[in-house]
Design a protein around this nucleic acid. Structure first.
Lengths: 161, 161
DNA sequence: TCATAATCGTTAGCATTGAAATGATATTAA
DNA sequence: TTAATATCATTTCAATGCTAACGATTATGA
C-alpha cells in the first residue's frame, strides 16, 4: 500500500470514519515504509558487496564497538530472536568475521568475538554505510533531524522497543 | 546496538569525530529500531493468531482495499521482491485467503484476488491491527504525529522509497 | 546436600526473503 | 513472418527469522 493510496480507506472500508485514527495510520505506514526503504537501499548499495544483511551488519557493528558481546545482548540490540543470532553467527563464523567464546565464569553464556578480518571489513564498510545514512536523511535540516529523532525516541521508549 | 549506546562511537571509533554526522546516525538508528519494534509487536500481538507475517498482512490489506492487484504492484507496495510476493501468495492461497487470476489481455500478468474467507479474516483482524497502531503512537500528540508523518514522508519522497 | 527451578544457547521445523535462472508471453525489427 | 529482445511470474537455492523443544549449566531452597 503506497502511502498516498492509504487515504482511500475512508471510502472503501465499512467501518465508520470516526472510529479510525487516521493520524496513527499515517505515522505507522510512513514509519515502516521509510525503514524498509532504508534497509533495502543499504543492503543493495553498501552491504551486498560483502554478502551481508542489515542484521548481520548490525551485529558486526556491535562487535566492532564492543569487541566481544553476549549473544543475548546481540539479540536485544538487533531486535531479533536468540535463534536468529545463533544462525547469523554461524554464517559470520563461516566467513571468518567472528568466533564464539564460552564464558569461563558461567559456561551457559557464549560471547561472540570479532576477528581481525571482521575488523578490516568493518573499517572498509562503515564509512560507506555512514555515507548512506547521511544521504538518506539529507533532505531534512539539522533541526528537523533532531525533531524526528526525539519523536522516534519517545515512541521507542514508551513501547519498550 | 541500543540507541543510547550508539553515542559511545565517538570514543571508540578511529575515524575523526568531525567526519561523522551524528544526527544522521541517530535518525537512522531510531527509525529502524522503531519500525522493527512496531513489526515485532504487531506480529506477536495481532497477526500471530492467524499465522500471518507483517508482509502477508500488508498484502491482504492491499487486496482488501483493491480486491484484485497485480503481483508487481503488490511487490512495490510492500517493498519486497516479486519472488517474495510469489511465495507469500502461495502460502495465502494454501490458507484459501486469496487466489491467482491470469490477465486475459496480457497472459504474462497475474492478478491476486481476495476470497470471501480472506475478507472475513481482514474484517476481524484490521480493527485489532488498528488498535495496535493507535497504541504505538499514543505517546505523541496529534500535532506531533502530523510532524513526524510529514518528516517521514519527506524522507520517503526524496529517496524514492 | 540435592532436587527443583531458572537461564542460556542451540537445534528443528517452518515461513520469509532476495538473487539468479527459467519458462512463458508479448513486442520489436528486419 | 520470424528471429531477437523485452517483460512478466515462478522456481531454485541459500540465508534470515520465529516458535518451540531441547540440553547444558547455574541458582535456589528445603
Amino acid at each position: 500500500m503506497l502511502p498516498e493510496e492509504k487515504d482511500t480507506i475512508n471510502q472503501l472500508t465499512k467501518a465508520p470514519i470516526e472510529s479510525l485514527n487516521l493520524h496513527s495510520i499515517t505515522v505507522v505506514t510512513n514509519l515502516y515504509r521509510a525503514a524498509q526503504g532504508l534497509r533495502n537501499k543499504m543492503e543493495r548499495e553498501v552491504l551486498a558487496k560483502h554478502g551481508l544483511s542489515w542484521t548481520s551488519f548490525s551485529i558486526l557493528y556491535d562487535l566492532w564497538i564492543w569487541d566481544s558481546v553476549e549473544t543475548k545482548k546481540l539479540a536485544l540490540s538487533a531486535g531479533v530472536s536468540k535463534a536468529t543470532i545463533s544462525n547469523i553467527t554461524n554464517t559470520l563464523e563461516r566467513k571468518e568475521l567472528c568466533y564464539r567464546k564460552v564464558d569461563n565464569r558461567d559456561r551457559r553464556i557464549t560471547c561472540v568475538v570479532l576477528t581481525d578480518k571482521g575488523r578490516k571489513v568493518m573499517e572498509e564498510l562503515y564509512p560507506k554505510f555512514h555515507e548512506g545514512e547521511v544521504e538518506v536523511v539529507s533532505s531534512l535540516s539539522i533541526e528537523e533531524q533532531k525533531v524526528i529523532s526525539s519523536l522516534l525516541r519517545r515512541v521507542i521508549r514508551e513501547n519498550d522497543f
